[in-house]
Write a protein that binds this DNA or RNA. Sequence first.
DNA 1: CGTCAGTTTGATCGTTGTCAATCAAAGTGG
DNA 2: CCACTTTGATTGACAACGATCAAACTGACG
Lengths: 231, 231
Amino acid sequence: MAIRQELAVLGSTAPLTRSLSPGSELYHQGEVCPRYFIVLQGWVALVSLLADGSSQIIDFATPGAFLGFQAVPGLPCYHSARCITPVEVQAYSRPLVDNHIVQNPRLAFLICRQACLDGARAHDHLVNLGLRPARERIAHLLLELFSKVQNRLPNQPGEVVPLPITQTDIAQAVGLTGVHVSRTLRILREQRIIRLRSHMMEVLDPIAFLRAAGVPSNGYNCWLPGLLSAA
Amino acid sequence: MAIRQELAVLGSTAPLTRSLSPGSELYHQGEVCPRYFIVLQGWVALVSLLADGSSQIIDFATPGAFLGFQAVPGLPCYHSARCITPVEVQAYSRPLVDNHIVQNPRLAFLICRQACLDGARAHDHLVNLGLRPARERIAHLLLELFSKVQNRLPNQPGEVVPLPITQTDIAQAVGLTGVHVSRTLRILREQRIIRLRSHMMEVLDPIAFLRAAGVPSNGYNCWLPGLLSAA
DNA sequence: CGTCAGTTTGATCGTTGTCAATCAAAGTGG
DNA sequence: CCACTTTGATTGACAACGATCAAACTGACG
C-alpha cells in the first residue's frame, strides 16, 4: 500500500493499469521482466517450475502485493506469476523505479520491509513443508490465507470467507498431490473443523482450526505481525 | 561485506566483536533481539522450532551474512540462530542501525538486496522440499553449500571442500530423518557422485552431481546470481 | 445436452519414518 | 594410558503416510 503511494510520486509517467484473465502470466520464469507490478484486484500465484513439469506455488499474492522486484537487476526470474482469478495490476517501468529507489530512502525502506515480510512468509512455508504432516500442513496454509483475506484470525464458528483457489492449487502450495488434498479436506470436514465448497471456506471450529494449523497458543505468526501487540 | 563497510561508517560506537562456541545461540526464537550481527567466522544455522520439539533449519549463515534484521522492529524472532562451529561475529546495536537505515539510502538498498537474496534462497529451499525426492533433495542442498563455500559450481572430479555440518543438520534442513539421510548418502556414495566424511565433502562426479541436484542445464540458480552473465 | 475442469473414491505401491541395535570417533576424568 | 561417556553414523525390520493409477462423479458453461 505504502509502496504504491511512494511510487505515485513518480508522477510524470502515469502507471499503466492492466487487466488479466485467469491463467495468464504477469511474468514468466526464465525471462527477464522489465516491469514491477502492484496488484489492485484478484489473486496471483507465484509458481516455480521444474524441468520434469512439476510445479510449486511459493506464495499467493493478493491486492496490495508488490511483485517482480529482484535483488540483482537484469537477471531472469526464477518463478512465474500466474493469475488464478481475473486480475488488475499497475505496471511500473523497472529502470524508473530502480532509479527512484537509490534516491528515495523511504521507498528503499518500504521495499526492504516488504522483502523481509516475504522472506518470513517463505520461511513459514518452509517449516510447514519440512515438519508438518498433510492435515496440519493444509490447515496451516488455509489459516494463512484466511488471515490474508480477513487481516485477523478466525474466531466465529461458521465464518465464511472467499477463497478463489482450487484443490490443485492447494496441493501445489503444500507439496502434496491433489488426490491427497481431497482426502485430507474430507477429514477436516468430517472433524467439523473447516469446509471448502464453491470457492468459499467455512470455518466450523476456529479453536480446532488454530490447533490443527499448529500455531502457538498465543497466536503469534508472521502473517499478522501486529497481532501480538494488539492482544 | 558491503553492508559491513556501510555500517563501519557508524564509527563512534565501535562494533562489539564476539566469539561463540558451537551450540550457543546468537538469538533465540520468541525473544526480542536487541542487536544485528555480521558473521566473521564460522557457520550459523537459522532454525525454527515447533511446539512438539521438532526443528527445521531454514538457512545456513556463513561469513559475510547479516543476521537479525526484521521487517517490524520490536517483535520476537520467529527463529533462532544456533552456532554449529566456533563463530565470530560483530554485534551492532539495533536502534543505532535502524536509525542509520532511514537516513542512508545506500545502506537501505544493500539490506534490501540481501533480503531479496535471502528470500530467493528460501524459495529455492521451498521448491526443494515440495517437489524433490530424498536423493535429489539432499544433493541440491549439498550443491548449494558447495557453491556457498567455493563461490562457483563444482567442475573437478575429486574436489574436496570443508562442510562442518552433521547428517542430522542436513536432515533438519531438508525435512527428512537422520536415518534416511544416512541411507541416501550411502546411495550417492555408491553411485560415485559425492562422499561425506569427517566434515569434508568430496565431489566424485560433478556432472552427475549437478544432474542429481536438479539444476537446469545452463546452471542457473539463485546462489550464484552472477553465474549466467559470467558464462 | 455435451463438454470440460475439478473433485471424489478405491486399490495398490513405494518412499520415508520409526524403533532398536550396533558401531566408530571423540572427548573426559581417573 | 585406560575405562567411561557422549555424540554421530550405520544397518535391519517393520509400519505408515502419501503417491499413483484408474474410474466415476459433480457442477459450470457453451
